[in-house]
């Protein structure tokens, strides 16, 4: 499972285990690393990726069941400034920002979406000298949370996982302003005969699961909106 989904999956796990009586074993990591592990025979049954590329490639390689692949969530992007009381799109026009953090657009889908949004607002040229790149959206979050960067783009789910008092100012970016950050789930070959794996994937498509995912800061794959 991709790291950005961790706290959300913990909530889903709790709900799923209470309903089904099955127990899940969760391994989290970056999508790229988990993909490499799966290719090399890691003992996983289900893969919740942070993108669509890796699950698709697993299907192509014959490592996953093509029928099972579906989009379980669309990542919600947020502009975050924990030291501010309010963050709006106008915050991007403030000139005294020392460091602006975003996930590396080459490595992370959230980073690519962030860059796309800044391009749309024509802020790249002016903000670029202040850019610092997190290796993942998780590291980007750490840069901002520790105060090393005062403003930047993170996953909405990360902010919503914080206690309200620590959130500061944030702006949930409307989903039509960037290409969707579609996150796909897929049933791996090892999990084909595992009833828990299919039960969990069925649960993941249920309305109750969708509600938990939506509340956690993701756009629902079927068009619902946050808030």
């Amino acid at each position: 499972m991709a790291t950005n989904f961790k706290t959300t999956l913990e909530k889903l796990e709790f709900d799923f285990e209470a309903r089904s009586g099955y127990a899940l074993n969760i391994v989290s990591g970056s999508t790229g690393k988990l993909y490499a592990q799966i290719i090399h025979g890691a003992p996983y049954d289900v893969f919740l990726a942070a993108d669509q590329v890796r699950p698709e490639r697993l299907v192509q390689n014959g490592a996953a069941d093509s029928e099972s692949r579906f989009t379980y969530a669309h990542g919600g992007l947020a502009l975050w400034g924990p030291s501010r009381s309010e963050v709006t799109p106008d915050t991007l026009w403030e000139i005294d920002i020392a460091r602006f953090a975003l996930a590396n657009p080459d490595l992370a889908p959230y980073g690519a979406a962030s860059l796309q949004l800044l391009e749309r607002y024509e802020r790249v040229e002016l903000l670029e000298p202040k850019f610092v790149y997190g290796e993942s959206v998780g590291q980007t979050f750490a840069f901002i949370r520790t105060g090393n960067a005062e403003l930047g783009f993170v996953a909405a789910s990360q902010i919503l996982a914080l206690p309200e008092a620590h959130r500061g100012g944030y702006w949930l970016v409307p989903r039509q302003l960037h290409d969707p950050i579609a996150q796909d789930a897929v049933l791996l070959n090892r999990g084909v005969d595992n009833p828990v794996a299919s039960a969990f994937l069925t649960y993941l498509r249920s309305d109750d699961a969708k509600e938990i995912i939506r509340e956690s800061g993701y756009w629902n794959a079927y068009g619902d909106w946050v808030e």
Partner: peptide, 12 residues
């Protein structure tokens, strides 16, 4: 280091 260098910390 990340914590110490932060502008929120005395040294940073």
């Amino acid at each position: 280091l990340l914590i110490a260098m932060s502008p929120n910390a005395p040294f940073g």
